[in-house]
Design a protein around this nucleic acid. Structure first.
Lengths: 258, 258
DNA sequence: CAAGTACTTCGGCCAAGACCGTAGTAGTTC
DNA sequence: GAACTACTACGGTCTTGGCCGAAGTACTTG
């Protein structure tokens, strides 16, 4: 057997719009029920059920039963990484309309990526640090300068603890912004500091972060960047849907939307 | 517009076996003609032509015309990275038969990955260095030990040149072996040394590497690993196909294979 | 145990698209 | 210009698979 068919199998799974929507919705690491996933993907529950069975069988999703509900989540970070790879290419595309991603505004603004921050805020921080010559970045490496080191000292981040046994500073391509943010020990330290000082908070059990009022001030004074998210607020709809009440709406969407 | 549909579009493109085969064949960075790609994907030239048009339109491939031939290659490293992401997930799969990848044996054995080595050999080297405590590796970072430093000194690799402005030592997940090999300055230095001392040679304009007899000896004495590839030798068929002569074979395959 | 909710299975409909045969265009060789 | 090669366009066939309605299973609540 060749390798082509196997990747085709996985890709075909992601290649259906309904399934792609489900996977996108799960990309932040949340767990969602079958109904919720049916809703976000815009298909009837029966159809969603079939899709979810396929995704689980293929090992892209894992399933947890609690009572009469079935909770799905991505089976591993590798799946998330694969999806991010697809997103990068999809957004690149054949130079045409660059339509911004909707429906994931919070995630796009700030989120965690493994142990560091990603999203608009994280990219802005990275760019600021480079601009101030606190950090040197190139294609696949990064380095702290001496002025950078003292900046972090003043900032209250102790980087000495971190420097053992792991990459110190490394750029990581941000899929939503398509510019690098900071990973490695430095990236982790910044996230740690931000959480510690209540600049940001995790949303539920998701990877998304909200910037607190304290954080807005902190980001402005420390990095000179605008930390407030664009006032949109259409996030979290899915998660907060009253489960028993959405069926009419689904029926409506199904009869009209397609 | 949501993000789902866009990644679905790209994924659907990869989701067809014929196209997936084409992309796999191009993964090592080679350029192949439409006919060659038709052959590897197992479809008639007309069909391949259609597939290639779609892949090019979507920006996954770039096209270069030379005379009456059309040479295709992956449009960017991002596409290769996406495919590697898919491969990792595809090989993982739902715990079942782990059928080894055929038809890319050379590539699986040794290849370059950006500026360092990947494949069986590279993974073996990395494991050896870790086992000897020359290098410490964890999830996302690596570090040279003092004994490691003197090992590389003796080995004849000067790492001092490299340590500016880039990541020094970093594990990188090998898609064919699914275990890490070495990236960063150390990985690059090893590849450089191997090429410099004729341990390995590039195959044509591809990413694949062959280990020379010198290399087999060198790898054995320096790292204590077996450098010779498994005797299989079904590689390079595509590239060496006599172009005008394959049509019968294609016709045969098409009439039987499906 | 009856009613309600979450989810799955089955069956039939339908559209998308992969495929190739035929025929055509463009470039090369003699 | 004739013969040949590399590739593309068109048209028709046929399979795949997404979709939903209806019906059925599993769990919870009162």
């Amino acid at each position: 057997m060749d390798t082509g068919p196997k990747i085709a199998q996985v890709a075909a799974l992601v290649g259906d719009p309904a399934r792609a929507n489900m996977l996108s919705a799960l990309m932040d690491g949340r767990t969602l029920t079958a109904s919720e996933l049916a809703y976000v993907s815009g298909v009837a529950p029966q159809t969603a059920s079939g899709h979810l069975a396929k995704l689980s069988d293929a090992g892209l999703l894992t399933l947890e039963k609690h009572g009469r509900r079935r909770y799905f989540r991505l089976a591993s970070p590798l799946v998330a990484r694969m999806l991010e790879g697809l997103m990068v290419v999809a957004q690149e595309g054949p130079a045409r309309q660059r339509n911004l991603w909707r429906g994931g505004e919070t995630l796009r603004h700030a989120r965690t990526c493994y142990d560091h921050m990603a999203g608009r805020i994280a990219v802005a921080i990275a760019e600021r640090l480079v601009q101030q010559s606190f950090i040197l970045l190139d294609e696949d490496g990064g380095q702290l300068t001496d002025t950078g080191r003292s900046f972090f000292d003043e900032f209250g981040v102790d980087l000495r603890l971190a420097s053992k046994r792991r990459v110190f500073c490394r750029p990581c391509l941000d899929w939503s912004e398509r510019r690098p943010h900071l990973a490695g020990a430095v990236g982790a330290a910044i996230l740690h500091h931000a959480l510690e000082h209540d600049w940001v908070e995790h949303i539920r059990d998701s990877r998304a972060l909200v910037v607190t009022p304290v954080g807005v001030r902190g980001l402005a004074t420390t990095f000179g960047i605008e930390g407030a998210p664009p006032t949109d607020g259409r996030e979290g709809q899915v998660a907060s849907l009253p489960c028993g009440r959405i069926s009419d709406e689904i029926r409506f969407r199904n009869s009209v939307g397609r």
